[in-house]
Design a binder for these strands. Sequence first.
RNA 1: GCCCAAGUGGCGGAAUGGUAUACGCGGUCGGCUCAAACCCGGCUGUCCUUAAGGACGUGGAGGUUCGACUCCUCUCUUGGGCACCA
Length: 822
Amino acid sequence: MRDEIKTSYDAVRAQERWQQFWEQDNTFTPIDDGSKERRYVLDMFSYPSGDLHMGHAEAFAIGDVVARYWRLKGYDVMHPIGWDSFGLPAENAAIARDSHPADWTYANIETQANSYKRYGLSLDWSRRLHTSDPEYYRWTQWLFLRFYEQGLAYRKDSFVNWCPKDQTVLANEQVVNGACERCGATVTKRKLTQWYFKISDYAQRLLDDMKQIEQGWPERVLAMQRNWIGRSQGAYVDFKIEGRDEPVTVFTTRPDTLYGATFFVVAPDSDLAAELCAPAQRDAFNSYLEETKKATEIERQSTERPKTGVFLGVHAVNPVNDELIPVYAADYVLSDYGTGAIMAVPAHDQRDLDFAKTYQLPVRMVLDTGLPDPAASGVATPGDGAYVTSAALDGLTDKTAGVAKMCEWLEERGLGKAAITYRLRDWLLSRQRFWGCPIPIIHCPGCGEVPVPDDQLPVTLPDLRGAALTPKGVSPLASATEWKSVPCPRCGAPAERDADTMDTFVDSSWYFFRYCSPGYTEGPFRSEDVAKWMPTAQYVGGVEHATMHLLYARFFTKVLYDLGLVGFTEPFSRLLNQGQVINKGKAMSKSLGNGVDLGQQIDAFGVDAVRMTVVFAGPPEDDIDWADLSPASSLRFLQRVYRLAADVASAPGADFNTGDLALRQTTHRGISAMTEALDSQRFNVAVARIMELVNATRKAIDSGPGGGDPAVREAAEAITIALSLVAPYVAEEMWELLGHTPSVANARWPHPDPALLTQESVTCVVQVQGKVRAKLEVTPTVTEEELTALALADPTVQRTLADRPIRKVVVRPPKLVSIVPG
RNA sequence: GCCCAAGUGGCGGAAUGGUAUACGCGGUCGGCUCAAACCCGGCUGUCCUUAAGGACGUGGAGGUUCGACUCCUCUCUUGGGCACCA
């Protein structure tokens, strides 16, 4: 009995009922016949690490509001779902359980799929994909080969994170405080041959094309990408080195300070350092190099760390004055930025100055900035100033002019040229892991790298499980001898498959194209399908992917454009980064014990209440703290709304025009306000507007025209449709209760009637010296003169003005009168 | 160090340059009830005042304006990103 009073609708029953209905009805499969304008709403697909959690709850609730709203507005909406199902956790689980990674992966996918369905998302299940399916990764491999043909996929040697105990390469994310996250051993660097994508070729386009998405992407994401790409403008300068025929090129942003270069530094882990080192210094260099390799990432990144280095026993020649300057190897110079070598100008660069002080190297000021001499102060002066002892530059006083002049000088003599470099490095995609997409390359002793022919794709994974997946220093695939041994496709000689798999970010860089052509067998997608749906109208996902997935996806799209496969260069027109769901001020974590279980919340309050809670909590991009929220009150509200529908006594199709005018006006103003909030993605405000309309309708039923008035039906229907965006189950129940045929998702978003948006009386504010002194009820059509007279006649205004003369009156009929006394 | 974002009641948060604090949470008073829960309604920024009323109030300091949470300059704080990038 008590429960019946408490709950006027049965959430669990409604969830089961409508979930089944939507599935059988294919309510959320797009028509795709061109009769309606298409819109593509995309949620970042999930990794199947377990069941859905609070983070999914928020992100998907937001994406679903957008998808459902656009569907109601009359668009043909595609809202697909899939899984990013390759990845390391599956492999670790397989080792621990002596099973195949697929067992764990696909079991988790089923769990999540059921949860997505229960969560009431308006998803099109007919486009479902898993990146670990051979029919998907076949096309990942196909794309890799296209990149390879274009020279955009290549192999090179590089230093990578290496765990000496586990005998395996580690991704940067797996290095925690310089130690292996699995065993705690100190991670070192090891030189390995790895596959790369040449994303650096696209650095400038990744910057330039931001113009296309500036309107639709959060500024902070664009800023992060700009920062990450790190364009910097300067010059290459050639330095001759004693005993070397070819000069060594350095990159500098300050060629104008060349006269102040007093030494030269190369990255210790570069080939150049090893080559330049004089025999006498060989031992010292080798031990320094060892030390460098051992230095953990944390140590290396600390700016507090004192500068270290070793003299290489050779000298370079400063091209502007032919001075001999000593060459050092020091780890403050990075091998993979610029050319891995720098000219050091201690007076005007703090790092060079720190190094110079440690090794007692000369400091020569060539730029008078008005600040104390760096040689004495220990503080470098990197700003603008008047050039001194810089020959042709002397007399100039600003950097731009100095740089330009020096570049010109260098170019005339063939000693250097203006240049641009980027911080963006090529994308290392090799992983010595099993559960990923095999790299479709065969290594032949005679022919070298040979691509697997397209008609032999996919290169599927062999059946390895349990202990066979234990890291051994090379990919587990390398020990699958039968799988690995193949004839060379070119010459037929015995050859070997590449044993590495691809970074899972490769899989996720094109899945949104695949959704456009599910099940297509002639290619990764049909270009016509992609042209119909893309660019994606709305992408929703976490900001943690700002410089990873989102950058890679943009890169892939540009390459596909260059290949003629797609007709645009930016995949996502609009991006929304939802905030995190936290608890008691901190991110939810096992160690803090502050996790909130989504399933439990749904069991306790129902899907609708949970969805409503996260959407109403605040602006979608802000973090929301579960401790501040009240799903119980969301449920209470939903029950109140449900009773509203139950109280509607007029028949479906009743003529709204005969309804109570005041309520009708409130309803139409409410619809207008909701529409405005939704169009500007202020979903929390949209919910507040629904609540306001609910309150007004309740009053109309209880103490106004009553439930039989058609205006009450009009309001209840508008509320039901709007509510279906956040609380689809209650909305379906209400829609049915109101005598309509399901689904409410097929209803039309209500249009506010302009005639009902006007009011017969508005409040006019009267300000004196900017302070509100009176409020007048006036008709909207009141004239400026009438309003002025009314305002001046008001007793409070009179009293405030006292006998002061009036200097000025600003009138904005019908809302405001502002009086300025003299 | 560089870049980005944000600072509004006890709390989450509203506010095309025009009534600051919508909506909700919490609190409180009341109704319903034998009673409690549920539900419904009122009140709820701070200070002064018996009251009527008034003063102050959107991190801080200036400025623009008849009028500033909103625009401009400076500044403080918090959060985030990048970081020995030459």
